[in-house]
Each structure stands twice: as structure tokens, then as C-alpha cells.
């Protein structure tokens, strides 16, 4: 069952080794994601997005503050979450099917049921003919799908996605965005989708959160009340894009928001 996620007053400090200064990456970050909503988190590179997801997933301890999943402290009782990282992290020695099965295997689900459920998931992703292939034999877009399928198969309460489409070319990227949103409309997972691509954030999400430069905290919450599928070039989208970019630019002292909006308007469209 999709769960809600709340993050209270979260801070993360990396103590530099030896002669490095400690790095305050997150400071007093708060956010709430109701169950079944798709939230996009936008921030500039190096602002601490990956760090935030790693803390939420329990891969790094928080320095202070807490993460609650369905109201329960996530650091006390570790619960598996679905994570699609920037680098995908598919196990190269496992076939597509074996990668997708991994989550159920770790929960000791029996071989036959596991295989069946994994095959069903591959069918949803249109990957049923690739089950026996190894990750290196797949295209970038297919690998991306495998990583998402692997994260979703154990039916996680929370799906964390870290710039999953940033390495793909425009066409594949917009195809996968549509695929993801169609899938979400059917499943209604709770998704926290991190990206630095403003258009992607608006096309996909119910709410866009903008975070500041390091130390990161949420500086703007922008609801996107548009039905799917969304017209990327429509007037509401343009207005939203302007607003997100403006907030994003304010996080960077000395930048003029308007100029950035114009230069970015010629970017990739699906």
C-alpha cells in the first residue's frame, strides 16, 4: 500500500575526512507527501537531492530530524522502499528477470511465485522478451525500465527516483515520462521524483518542490493542477515553468530569473 512520507527538520552534515571542512548538505528540511501523490523535487546540481533520497531510504543516517513513513519513524524500523538511482545499479551478472525478481528473493518469496510475478511485471513494462538478457545487452531506456520494474515489484510503500531519465536522449526520455505517468495513474504509488529538469517535473507531478542550494531546504511548493496527459507547450505549463524557474533562480544569488526562462524555452519537447 502506498504510504505517506513526512520529513521533519531534517539536517545532514558530512564530517569531512582529516583536513576537510564539514559539509552541511541538508538543513532544517521539511516536506510532506500524502499517500498516492506524485511529487517532483527540483534543485540545482549539488544542492543535496541525492543526499535527501539516501537519508529517506535509510542508506545514510540523518544528523538530526526525522523521516516518517505513514507516521512511523523510518530509522527505527527499516522498511524496504523502492529506489531508482541515477546510476540504476542493476546487478550486471543477473539477467533482466533475475534483477526484477531481486526484491521478492530478498523477502524469501518462493521461486515459482516470484518468477510469475516478475514475468507479469516485465509484461507491464513491455520487457517480456528480454527476461533472459543481461543489462549490458539493453538500450539505456530499457535499462531504465528494468530498474523501475525492480523497484516496483515488491510493492513498496514509497518510490524514490533520483534523476532516472537524465542520461537519456529527448525522445526516449519523453516516451518514458509518458510510460511512467500512465503506470502511476493505474497504480497511484507515492512517488518522490528528483530531477533538475523543470519541464519533466511539471509534466509528471502533482506538486513541485523547489529546494535551495546546499544546505538544502524546501523554498517553494508549487501545485500542478493539470489533468494528464499534459500539453508541454500549453499556456498553463509555460506559466508553471516560469514560476518554478524563478524560485530555482532565487536560490542562486546574483542570477536574473527572466533571462534563464527565455534561454531555456528552446529545450527539449516530447
Amino acid at each position: 500500500m502506498p504510504a505517506s512520507l513526512s520529513v521533519y527538520n531534517l539536517s545532514k552534515v558530512y564530517l569531512g575526512s582529516n583536513n576537510q571542512d564539514p559539509q552541511v548538505v541538508l538543513k532544517g528540511l521539511e516536506l510532506v507527501i500524502p499517500a498516492g501523490t506524485f511529487v517532483a523535487l527540483v534543485g540545482l546540481n549539488g544542492s543535496g537531492k541525492t543526499t535527501l533520497l539516501r537519508v529517506i531510504a535509510g542508506l545514510e543516517p540523518a544528523t538530526s530530524g526525522e523521516v516518517r513513513i505513514n507516521g512511523e519513524r523510518a530509522d527505527l524500523l527499516r522498511r524496504p522502499v523502492g529506489m531508482v538511482s541515477q546510476e540504476l545499479a542493476l546487478l550486471p551478472w543477473r539477467t533482466v528477470l533475475e534483477n526484477v525478481e531481486l526484491g521478492l528473493e530478498l523477502q524469501a518469496v518462493k521461486g515459482k511465485e516470484r518468477r510469475e510475478r516478475a514475468m507479469n511485471m516485465l509484461r507491464v513494462f513491455g520487457l517480456e522478451d528480454c527476461g533472459h538478457r543481461y543489462p549490458r545487452e539493453l538500450s539505456g531506456g530499457m535499462r531504465q525500465k528494468v530498474a523501475i520494474a525492480r523497484a516496483l515489484l515488491p510493492e513498496p510503500e514509497l518510490l524514490l527516483m533520483d534523476e532516472p531519465f537524465s542520461a537519456l536522449d529527448c525522445q526516449v526520455k519523453s516516451r518514458l515520462q509518458h510510460f511512467l505517468i500512465d503506470l502511476w495513474i493505474q497504480r497511484r504509488d507515492t512517488v518522490l521524483f528528483v530531477t533538475h529538469d523543470v519541464e519533466e517535473a511539471i509534466v509528471l507531478s502533482d506538486t513541485v518542490l523547489v529546494i535551495s542550494q546546499k544546505p538544502a531546504r524546501v523554498v517553494d511548493v508549487i501545485p500542478v493542477n493539470l489533468p494528464h496527459p499534459r500539453d508541454r507547450t500549453g499556456i498553463p505549463m509555460t506559466g508553471l515553468r516560469r514560476r518554478v524557474l524563478a524560485s530555482l533562480m532565487l536560490t542562486r544569488p546574483g542570477e536574473k530569473p527572466a533571462g534563464f526562462v527565455r534561454s531555456n524555452a528552446a529545450g527539449c519537447r516530447g
Binding site: L59, S85, G103, L106, R150
Partner: peptide, 11 residues
């Protein structure tokens, strides 16, 4: 990151 992937999946 592969270790992290297995950890997030409950390993």
C-alpha cells in the same frame, strides 16, 4: 551503489 540497491530492497 549495488550494495545500496540490495539494502533498499530489504537485503
Amino acid at each position: 551503489l549495488l550494495v545500496d540497491a540490495v539494502r533498499t530492497l530489504g537485503g
